[in-house]
Design a protein around this nucleic acid. Structure first.
Length: 649
DNA sequence: GCCGTTTTCGGCCCGACTGTTTTCAGTCG
């Protein structure tokens, strides 16, 4: 049997502390949580590592500073154990006794966790009893019938595991938000149309607008007498590849692309993204993929509770339940009721005693909170803000008056200046920023970017077009920018004179090779050098990540944003982009609030390569909402004439 | 492993579904 290589702890690449970055430690803690699951570890111990990883991921302070000041255990969720581990890792570069845990677990066992319906307990049983260490081992053990003979297993479990292995190969985990919403909204509409369904609504991570979606949750209001007929109707809908299960309150299915009558619309991608997600194989992979979906059927009077419950997140729900418990109440998907009245009653019976809730606002009000928009339900401080009545008024797609980073035929776009401008006007925008690639960019040896001369000629074209609109009394203008490559030494493409002729410079890292194999601090310093250039305006797709394609390069984004904040305070506009392409969504929404708090305006850019691509700003707005941003925090929400003044300074 | 204006020990959110069981464990969200 083929052996996968053993798991290794991260090794320091530095010869002095801090030996590891915050991101490295967070990743490690996450992995330890997974490994512990595969031993007999206490579930709460596992959760402690998962929590610590999440907390570290959103810790704004410099981790090394916190360690040196001895404050690590002041961070809520990090105690003596994990705090000591982190301290040792950063100061000494070692990981305590963790190596023995790493030696204990085969990497193949972690892959097995991806098989639907298989969890750590049964992986451990099969490992201990049958020596199963990988998916290939598991496949063989099932084929031979050995799994069915184990205590607690049977023929059905064995067949389900074989089905699950095939599913895993076909399905590859989560789907990007754009794809998840295509499935989710189409499925929601079909369920809503079934006789006996008075109301159906998409919940889950799709409603929270997570950047990737694991499965589709739809809540349907169905009275008990209709459940059987509705359940039957759901199972016969088109686009269902398989029915996974059906009970009195839930139908669980697997959806495939035949759900879409007119095929799946994947939009157009730029070359770099296309290659990162699979190149020529990508369209087939995407359209042959599947996604799990569940419909929860509940009586109309508890609909709001079920919707809130299945919208999540899990972490947000746990906090909500705790608030209920503090008030002597029990909160679940059926209601909110006094513990003593509900007693031992379960499910819908206990809900007879529930406080009424016509909508989600009522539920939050019962717990003395203002309604929390679904995008914010991640337990990132929204409960506290809702209790204090301090939730922000989130930006809406209609608040945008334009965007700054778009391409034309001058580089790798497929539409002309005029076509892009017309499309922007149809969106009721007041401005459109054109930012074609600078000369250094080439993909696969072919130059994509524009020479300085052509770039300057485009400026002249834009000047003429703008004059035309001004003469016609039309409140619309193009801003002439460029997407300038940031070189590994932190310098910007083009000479000074060319960049000075532009209204704005979107600085982006494209040649990742030079950045991926460097120390985090070196990258951070290079980026800061680029941003300090007086012509630099917008940091484009900051990390370079492609969702489900590749990770971004390592650097300290907090440090970069802090420096951008200082420069803004000195009066020079430095903005950070949320690249709204659903393949990027970079700036990550988790950094939005930090940027805002540093005084860095965020801009939402579609990075459009054709006129349809402009509509991708919608995804960027969703991320800004997840990141708590209001219209006043977003550069695109300023008027065209106001921006004209800012860019000419 | 973390946490604590009742607690330094004993909790840690809650229920549905499935497959294996004669009352429950594992998995999922």
């Amino acid at each position: 049997m083929e052996k996968t290589s053993a798991l290794r702890l991260p090794v320091s690449r530095r010869d002095e502390p801090p030996h590891f970055s915050k991101a490295q430690v967070a990743d490690l803690l996450e992995q330890v949580g997974i490994l512990l699951q595969l031993t007999d570890a206490n579930v709460f111990r596992v959760r402690a590592y998962q929590n610590a990883s999440r907390i570290l991921g959103s810790l704004e302070d410099d981790l090394w500073d916190v360690i040196q000041e001895g404050n690590i255990t002041d961070v809520k969720g990090i105690g003596k154990g994990i705090g000591g581990l982190i301290t040792e890792a950063l100061t000494e570069g070692t990981w305590g006794e963790l190596q023995s845990l790493y030696d204990e677990i085969e990497p193949g066992m972690i892959e097995m966790l991806g098989i639907p319906g298989l969890g750590p307990k049964r992986i451990k049983v099969m490992h201990d009893e049958l020596g199963v260490e990988s998916i290939a081992d598991l496949s063989a053990a099932c084929e031979s019938g050995a799994v069915a003979d184990l205590d607690g297993f049977g023929e059905k479990s064995q067949q389900k595991l074989l089905d699950g292995i095939e599913l895993l190969a076909r399905f590859k985990g989560r789907r990007r938000l754009n794809v998840g919403l295509l499935y989710g909204e189409a499925f929601e509409a079909q369920v809503a149309n079934i006789p006996g369904v008075s109301r159906a609504q998409l919940a889950g991570s799709a409603r929270r607008r997570r950047e990737t979606i694991g499965d589709i949750d739809v809540v349907a209001a169905v009275e008990p007498d209709d459940v059987e007929a509705v359940s039957e109707a759901i199972r016969s809908l088109p686009g269902i590849a398989e029915v996974k299960g059906a009970g009195e309150s839930k139908v669980s299915v697997i959806l495939e692309a035949s759900l879409f009558e007119s095929g799946m619309d994947l939009g157009t991608l730029d070359g770099g993204v296309f290659d990162a997600v699979g190149g020529d194989d990508y369209p087939d992979m995407e359209t042959s993929g599947t996604i799990e979906a569940q419909v929860r059927m509940v009586p109309a009077k508890v609909f709001a509770y079920t919707l809130a419950y299945f919208t999540g997140s899990k972490e947000h729900n746990i906090r909500m339940r705790q608030l209920a418990i503090d008030r002597g109440l029990r909160l679940n998907e059926f209601g909110l009721f006094p513990e003593e009245e509900a007693g031992d009653l379960k499910g819908l019976e206990a809900a007879e005693f529930s406080l009424e809730a016509a909508d989600e606002e009522d539920i939050y009000r019962h717990l003395e909170l203002s309604w929390v928009p679904p995008e914010m339900r991640e337990d990132m401080g929204e409960i506290e803000a809702a209790a204090a009545g301090e939730l922000p008024e989130l930006v809406k797609p209609t608040d945008l008056r334009g965007s700054f980073h778009n391409h034309t035929t001058l580089s790798d776009g497929v539409a002309t200046l005029e076509q892009m401008a017309r499309a922007a006007m149809q969106l009721d925008w007041e401005f459109l920023g054109i930012s074609d690639h600078s000369q250094l960019l080439n993909i696969g040896g072919r130059q994509i970017g524009a020479d300085a001369e052509d770039m300057l000629a485009q400026g002249e074209q834009i000047r003429v077009l703008n004059e035309g609109w001004e003469d016609a009394g039309k409140d619309f203008r193009l801003f002439h920018g460029a997407e300038c490559d940031i070189l590994p030494d932190g310098s910007l493409d083009y000479d000074d004179a060319t960049r000075k002729a532009l209204s704005h410079v979107v600085g982006s890292v494209h040649q990742l090779a030079g950045w991926n194999n460097r120390d985090e601090q070196e990258n951070t310093e290079a980026l800061i050098r680029a941003i300090e250039d007086p012509t630099f305006t917008i940091l484009g797709h900051p990390t370079g990540r492609i969702l489900q394609g590749r990770d971004g390069f390592p650097f300290d984004l907090h440090q970069v944003l802090r420096r951008m904040g200082e420069l803004n305070a000195e009066g020079t506009l430095k903005s950070v982009e949320i690249n709204a392409s659903p393949y990027r969504l970079d700036l990550d929404w988790r950094f939005c609030r930090f940027a805002r708090d540093q005084g860095v305006p965020v801009c939402i850019n579609p990075d459009a390569h054709d006129i349809r691509g402009l509509r991708d700003v919608w995804f960027g707005v969703q991320m800004a909402r997840k990141g708590w941003l209001a219209a006043e925090d977003i550069l695109n929400c300023r008027s065209g004439s106001q921006l004209e003044n800012q860019f000419s300074n």
